[in-house]
């Protein structure tokens, strides 16, 4: 099985990080994975995205153009990528920044008030983790415990004191999926 994901949002929303956690979590589960960032002469405040592939087979293209899953942290990202998601795929979007999103036939769509939930936890920087938690709950692409383990590898040691907060945000997101 091969599962392809795009994580997208404004620069600074931490979309590269949640992509890395998905890839690292997949690796910890023994899968083949790739993570590829959009890069180039991008402006501060512009959109950023990364492609993640998690597979039982050797990964072919690291650039995802028809994802199985999309995490969209802002409006422009949802608009840009929603039509590319494969039939039967899943979209988690940040309802704090996207007021209304039209239904996409054949797709599972989950609005997540990421910023509000993050603020309730006392740090709006973990909005990305709320969205990731919801995405993991919706798609089961990796387990929560793999994502938590991945945090220890991906976050630099000086940020490890923030791991409990990040885990709380992941759990809040996951709890949105019944």
């Amino acid at each position: 099985m091969t599962y392809e994901i795009i994580c997208a949002g404004f620069g600074g929303q931490g979309v590269m990080l949640i992509g890395e956690l998905l890839a690292y979590g997949g690796m910890l589960e023994g899968k083949n994975v790739t993570w590829f960032p959009s890069y180039g002469p991008e402006m501060r405040g512009g959109t950023a995205n990364c492609s993640v592939v998690i597979s039982d087979q050797p990964v072919g293209s690291p650039i995802v153009s028809e994802p199985d899953g999309l995490i969209a942290m802002n409006g422009p990202s949802l608009e840009k990528f929603k039509a590319t998601v494969k039939p039967g795929g899943a979209i988690v979007y940040n309802a704090s920044m996207i007021e209304t999103a039209s239904e996409m036939p054949g797709l599972k769509m989950l609005p997540v008030p990421s910023n509000e939930i993050a603020s309730e936890l006392g740090n709006n920087k973990v909005a990305n983790m709320v969205a990731l938690g919801a995405f993991i709950g919706l798609t089961k692409v990796i387990t929560l415990s793999s994502a938590v383990k991945a945090l220890e590898h991906v976050l630099p040691a000086r940020h490890h004191k923030l791991i409990p907060l990040n885990v709380a945000a992941l759990e809040k997101g996951l709890a949105l999926v019944k």
Partner: peptide, 10 residues
């Protein structure tokens, strides 16, 4: 190339 250089893999 730029992709091979920027891509992360195990």
């Amino acid at each position: 190339d730029a992709i091979m250089g920027q891509m992360m893999e195990p």
